[in-house]
Design a binder for these strands. Structure first.
Lengths: 212, 212, 212, 212
DNA sequence: CATGAATGAGCTTTCATTCAT
DNA sequence: AATGAATGAAAGCTCATTCAT
């Protein structure tokens, strides 16, 4: 019944990562409650019981999935920005360019949808996500915009908090569209040109025209 | 007893509407799979069996909920626009003003979240929602923007499809925020001023500056 | 699949009693943890789910079993004594005669064994049993013995608490023997003559011989 | 390291004994089915797999526990009696004194409870216990009482079999009380004075008064 | 029409047991 | 001899669905 003959070598350290990866796949496909632990196990190439060797229960596994899938995602964007100092406009462009990759990558793109969908049952996860992802992304964006306002690139009459949300909203829409409507309905959305337009309109909308 | 004579008459036709209303409440609170039909029945003041008199199963009820909750929502916006012809900028403002009310009203605000969350299990609903809500809203918005482009108010180099999504994205974000993060985390978002800023920045971003 | 055609008449009131009776049987045969709820359901002629209609969980069912099996048991003895005032010796005899019936009746006889065996997992039940059965039996016995001491029938140098336990110990032994060793090993113990001897020796042992 | 050289040698033969000792502890604390083999292994300082090196399965381990815990218990009493010939009354006192120690020692005191509780699932053990412990204790007691009857100390109209059970019953009650109700409910029972009273009342009850 | 007792498939979770190392 | 990662059968429990009344 052993699927793979290399059963005994890839041990204790690889297992949890493999299981979490498989779980992300299944959660992304079916959502939390429709996910059967047996399917996760199957895809990870282990038995049902093995999942419980590493995770106390389904919820615990779900949290691990979110955590594991997010760490690289946030870090990637953060470091990207930190290492590419430039004008506010250019940095905004950088952030978006960096986000597009993440948004387009299938499994990670499902995280926002999962968090939103399961915020009912797991407020903990919403809390965690808000703190670890949204807040960090917020600070990042807010920094860029503040700098733009200070340098005279951006209008000073725009609430930073609002501006940040405006900047993020189309990215969120893209992620949700790609995970909800594209697979279900087949309505394609080409992320790259859309976000390019977004950047264009946003920068134009935030641009300081008093200097005209 | 003589006070509510109409109450005893409404039964036959009101029943399904009452059940759907109760169901929307519960679905909005708990999500699809965490919703027990028994609770829906309780809130509708009927027995579990009665629900099955009007709806074949849980999924059917869910579809009815989405359908019923959306008809007035879309119609409201559509008629509002149709009845208030004005400049593109002004109409954009009208659409948003009209949307704010819907988005802020608790039960209807949960619909987008529900549709997104359940697009996994019920592609039908995603399809229906796309067709009946998104597409109609799209046409509406697209009309306004096309008119703005034609009149010289808006830039002509902006893809209409993209512009519509950009216009809607912050509204979606607001709805999701209010139904996912506000209740779970207590992070308030004041919809009205946010969408006012959105409108401001968007119109500025779309504004034709070649005439300068 | 319906075992019995009279499925729909014996409703809501009879069900729980039937289930508890079936449960007592199975618990008595197998012990708590080896009892599968499905078997209880089968014997009660209902489905697994029905058990959960009346009892929150296995433990709850167990408590109900103990409770239901004990109420008549204790009451029987108490009323018997109350209605048969006599000399201390005679009353002691009455109590025992009354106990013999209970001890010999198969399902109720298993209760002490069950309580003892499950005091590990369910201290609540031990507590309940101590309070509702043992304490009440104690008071009963203590009353008889005190009266015997007061009337000069019994020695006054014997601790009442001890005397009560001495009186009960052989009854307990009988119950345990009949439920543990008789079925497992086939070693018969004839309760009636044994408890007759017990009474004889006990009364003789407690008898006041200073008057000799 | 030089301190405990004997510790490194004892392995091969001590292992099973250590495991059984640990198992007795856990069985006494939790009962048979609530005992996880992993906890037994932990307390014995070995791994789960090792337990299976010495015992075919959980039941086998349980039997070994009972066996091992009983050998010294019975032997202790038997030799004590054999080495202390005296009058029947005195010997009865000896037996009880010897039993009190065993009954009061925590792990061994749990054996009767375990045997009784698990006689459902393991009739073998009940059989074994009956043969190896009860029967041997019986013979012992019976001998003492027969001698008492022969010497004229005790009444001759009392069935020996019954008398033996009467003698043992309060000891059993004490053991069960201490392992079932004391830990669960906190209702203390002082074994020594109680069994002293028992001996007093029993000897008085068995005493031959025809010689008066 | 309406009820709600009854059902049973299906899920999560536990843990004795196995076996490659 | 010893390990402990892996297994999978088995059981408790939930709840959408049915149907006799």
């Amino acid at each position: 019944m052993a699927r793979k003959p290399s059963h005994w070598k890839r041990r204790k350290d690889a297992r949890p990562t493999e299981i979490v990866a498989a779980a992300l796949d299944v959660f992304a496909e079916r959502g939390f409650s429709a996910t059967r632990l047996e399917e996760v196990a199957e895809r990870a190439g282990v038995s049902k019981g093995t999942v419980y060797l590493y995770f106390a229960n389904k919820e615990d596994l779900f949290k691990a999935v979110v955590r594991q899938a997010l760490v690289p995602t946030i870090a990637k964007v953060e470091t990207h920005i930190r290492e590419h100092p430039a004008s506010a406009r250019e940095q905004l462009a950088e952030v978006f360019a960096s986000m597009v990759g993440t948004i387009a990558t299938p499994p990670a793109a499902a995280i926002p949808k999962l968090v939103i969908a399961e915020s009912w049952n797991f407020p903990d996860i919403a809390k965690f996500y808000l703190k670890e992802v949204i807040a960090r992304g917020f600070r990042l964006m807010a920094g860029v915009i503040e700098r733009g306002k200070a340098s005279g690139e951006f209008r000073t009459d725009v609430n930073v908090d609002h501006a940040v949300r405006l900047a993020i909203a189309p990215v969120l829409l893209t992620a949700l569209w790609k995970t909800s409507f594209e697979p279900a309905v087949g309505a394609r959305l080409d992320a790259e040109p859309f976000l390019k337009t977004h950047l264009d309109v946003l920068i134009n909308g935030l641009a300081n025209k008093t200097s005209r």
